[in-house]
């Protein structure tokens, strides 16, 4: 079954590449707008060994990972603190629901005036963008912890901190991780947008905007987008894999219900 999926998947990818190649080569679509797929992939391969582009990728990854880590370190403890005090939790949820709809990219113009250092600016925006999904998932996950599980531990004479550590956090963890995964994909959007709009020295977005300014070769632009997609895919797969390994009990439970 899995072998079949690999074969079919590979065939699908080959088919998509061939289709793009054909429409471009036959002139069905203007080749300067949509270059042949092999050209794009060739440029992408060249980028993989281009030191300048690798520095761009490293800078983007650094801001992305740094901002995300910072957000996790702040949002999870904050969420646990707010979520474990019922009165505070309700009010915090209301505040978060009010802040969350603000699209984080709307803050890019503000961040441009506020921060001089591009890395600092990127990380602050990512931090802000990631804070809400993680915080919200933590708050709701803690609210929905099975009271029977908590009571059963309490009945054995365990205190509040142990209940929090042994029941609330483990049962909230899968949901929190989902929040982190959502945050990671939003963060990638924010970091690239910020680089595109605010400029700076290194970053995938900087590569794209300088390519655009320097003649606008679409094959180079698409090659950059391909790598951005690969980064997004890898991050998502890594987090999904982590979820699957760390929370095997959870997925088993979910499958049992389904």
């Amino acid at each position: 079954m899995s072998f079949r999926r690999i074969v079919f998947g590979a065939a699908g990818v080959a088919g998509a590449v061939a289709l793009l190649e054909v429409v471009s080569r036959t002139g069905l679509v203007d080749a300067s707008a949509l270059p042949p797929a092999t050209t794009v992939l060739g440029e992408a391969a060249k980028l993989a060994v281009d030191g300048k582009f690798l520095a761009d990728v490293a800078a983007t990854l650094q801001a992305w990972f740094g901002g995300l880590a910072l957000a996790v370190l702040v949002a999870v403890p904050l969420g646990v603190l707010l979520g474990s005090v019922p009165l505070l939790g309700t009010a915090a949820r209301a505040l978060v629901e009010l802040m969350r709809p603000i699209p984080s990219v709307a803050l890019i113009p503000l961040a441009i005036i506020l921060f001089a250092d591009p890395t600092q600016m990127k990380m602050s925006l990512i931090f802000y963008a990631c804070l809400w999904p993680i915080l919200i998932n933590t708050l709701y996950a803690l609210r929905d912890v099975d009271p029977v599980a908590k009571d059963s531990l309490r009945s054995f004479g365990f205190g509040t901190p142990s209940v929090l550590w042994r029941v609330s956090l483990p049962s909230a963890a899968p949901f929190i991780t989902t929040g982190v995964r959502i945050a990671a994909s939003v963060a990638l959007i924010v970091v690239v947008s910020t680089e595109l709009l605010a400029g700076g020295i290194n970053g995938v977005g900087i590569y794209l905007s300088s390519t655009q300014a320097g003649g606008g070769r679409t094959d180079l632009l698409l090659a950059g987008a391909v790598w951005a997609g690969v980064l997004g895919l890898l991050a998502n797969l890594a987090l999904l894999g982590l979820e699957r390994v760390a929370f095997r009990w959870h997925s088993a439970k979910v499958e049992a219900i389904a």
């Binding site: 994909s185 990638l188 959007i189 690239v192 947008s193 595109l196 995938v204 977005g205 794209l208 632009l221 950059g224 987008a225 391909v226 951005a228 997609g229 690969v230 980064l231 997004g232 895919l233 998502n236």
Partner: peptide, 8 residues
């Protein structure tokens, strides 16, 4: 997985 702004 391609972040949409990269295509801008």
């Amino acid at each position: 997985a391609v972040p949409p702004p990269t295509l801008l």
